[in-house]
Write a protein that binds this DNA or RNA. Structure first.
Lengths: 342, 342
DNA sequence: GTTAGCACTCAACACCATCGAGTGCTAACG
DNA sequence: CGTTAGCACTCGATGGTGTTGAGTGCTAAC
């Protein structure tokens, strides 16, 4: 059996309704809707077909139908009519985003709360991937006897810092000289390439071998760890309780636990890196805990590289339309704000 | 009417039981308990007295009694027998705490998750108050044309950074010289006194007035804002859903919203600064949303100053005993770890 | 002063009838 | 031949009813 025009129309109406109400949709409801000129009986026949095709499911015999994952997939791929954000909304969001300090972490934090406010779902943002950023400046700052803070300023203005041990007897001026050398050598290198650069330096400057060795180690650890917990920011986790699908405390707890595990989130969001919007519906997430959730992500850039991800997590019956518009806009806005230093 | 020995005993037994079960406790239950050698009837009489005195309440006529806030207050003040943590637990917690990077934010993050793991409640930690920290080093790092990052290393090793605009034509070396001057002047000053120091410098060095003016402004803003969102760290928010008092979704949402508002949390925790443990039960929190919650806080020090707060938020019937032991231990452990730089 | 006994209260639970939204099928209609 | 009205059927939701049991308060006896 093929899907004809009318089946599309009806399926769309069902999904639209279900997204709003979270209640199984009956034939009468659809029939009454504007744009559909058929009697409940006709609709019932079509619904029966759609069920057979795997797009709809019945919770029980005498209930309406609910969309299946397959239906959502079809919906986001073909049926959805994109809505635009009003200029008002855009302005408001943009304003919130730029109003705070320019520090990257703060910008991202603001972005997360703007996202969750605008969508009423939970938002997650992953900070720029370190590997793709370029080093702008390296600075060693004395902290205590034989201890220094290594600060790395990148093209995104982000500061990565780490405490390292330094050989005895180096004062602030020594550290500055070393910083200068480090900066000269490493400036404009992507963090990824930093390793070779370091090894070259090790050959050159024998006397500072120990210091550089430690700095290298720390850097490497940073890189492979992929950043720490502060790099994944969650906004609006209270929103999830607004939706009836999480009024079951166990489901809600499940969801919350996922939100607390930053590693999992990073993994979930960090899969693809294109500018396009990625939508994963229910089981497509490959995580049993998130079988009833959808994740919509977009990515943002710092400078020329696509580096970070922003996303919305919500029930499968989320308002994809709205979420996509918001994410798309915010992705661009975030890229703009963060690329300002470039 | 006065509370005699037996009334204390019974009240304690009731609270202990209620903390475990969250169910109204009846006279039989108490009577059966070891240590109480009276029949249910006797206990009933005593319970009736205790109710009249305001220590107990009855949800409805034919139910058992539940402790009132007044009872919890009495409990934590007088009745509670302190339990010690096992050495095993102490070691385990300490290990988790020091295992990660030494960066202050990471230490605090670890501490929050250790706290919530150990207590099964939600933990909140407020980073050291800036005002009491001493400046160790100030460094300006070029980020882009006319933009520099001002990094302030404090006695706790914390880095406060802020983007500031600088006059045109200053290169890295100029910034370094300025940093040196700043460091010389400001080193060992508490952040609180920084303002006067700055004004003095403004008089001295006319030519850098603009730069310093901006730096001063930024610093001031930082100080009065009391830090940004990253200074309040919440751990184990999923834990709250373990308790039947939050199986009502609305209550849970209430709670979650509070946890998301970092400002509120800072206010809630930041009230007192003594090393002692502070316990606020139900309405004592002065926040209607938290009428069913208790907040137990301890403070930790960096160096000599009492500066930050760590706390547990949970239902009023929380296991005060355990929570207090854990907080006390963690307060000390955190102080040790953070004061290492001193 | 303590306790056994007893009548009373009331939430929780199971049971049952009713209601209504929704379906599938069939037959009639244009 | 597609569409629709009509109708019997299903089944969750709702609300009323009776029962159960935990718990109380009171009184009288120990």
């Amino acid at each position: 059996m093929q899907l004809d025009e009318r089946k599309y129309l009806i399926l769309q109406a069902i999904i639209d309704d279900y997204i709003m109400t979270a209640m199984p949709v009956g034939s009468r409801t659809i029939s009454r809707k504007s744009g559909v000129g058929f009697s409940p009986a006709t609709i019932r026949n079509e619904m029966s077909d759609l069920e057979e095709l795997g797009y709809l499911a019945q919770p029980h015999t005498s209930a309406g139908r609910v969309p299946s994952y397959k239906a959502y997939r079809l919906y986001v791929d073909h049926l959805m009519k994109t809505v635009k954000l009003t200029n008002d909304e855009r302005e408001q969001m943009h304003e919130h985003l730029v109003s705070r300090s320019k520090q990257v972490e703060n910008v991202i934090r603001s972005a997360a709360s703007v996202l969750s406010d605008a969508t009423k779902y939970t938002s997650v943002i992953v900070a720029p991937k370190l590997g793709t950023l370029r080093i702008r400046h390296v600075q060693l700052v004395p902290v205590a006897e034989r201890t220094a803070l290594m600060i790395i300023v990148t093209s995104a203005g982000i500061v990565k810092d780490a405490v390292i041990r330094v050989p005895e007897g180096l004062d602030a001026d020594d550290l500055y000289s070393i910083s200068r050398i480090l900066t000269q050598r490493l400036a404009d290198q992507p963090l990824e390439g930093v390793r070779q650069a370091f090894s070259e330096m090790l050959r050159d400057a024998e006397q500072n071998r120990k210091l550089l060795g430690e700095a290298l180690q720390v850097l490497e650890k940073r890189l492979e760890a992929g950043g720490d917990a502060s790099d994944v920011i969650v906004g609006g986790s209270a929103n999830l309780l607004e939706y009836p699908e999480y009024s079951d405390v166990n489901k809600a707890r499940n969801f919350l636990s996922v939100l607390e595990s930053k590693d999992t989130l990073r993994r979930l969001l960090g899969r693809e890196g294109s500018m396009e919007i990625s939508i994963r519906i229910g089981p497509e997430n490959q995580m049993p805990e998130l079988n009833d959730c959808s994740i919509v992500t977009a990515s943002y850039r710092v400078g020329d590289h696509s580096t970070g991800t922003l996303g919305i997590i919500g029930p499968t019956r989320m308002n994809y339309n709205r979420v996509i518009s918001v994410l798309d806009f915010m992705g661009r806005a975030l890229s703009d704000v963060l690329s300002e230093y470039k």
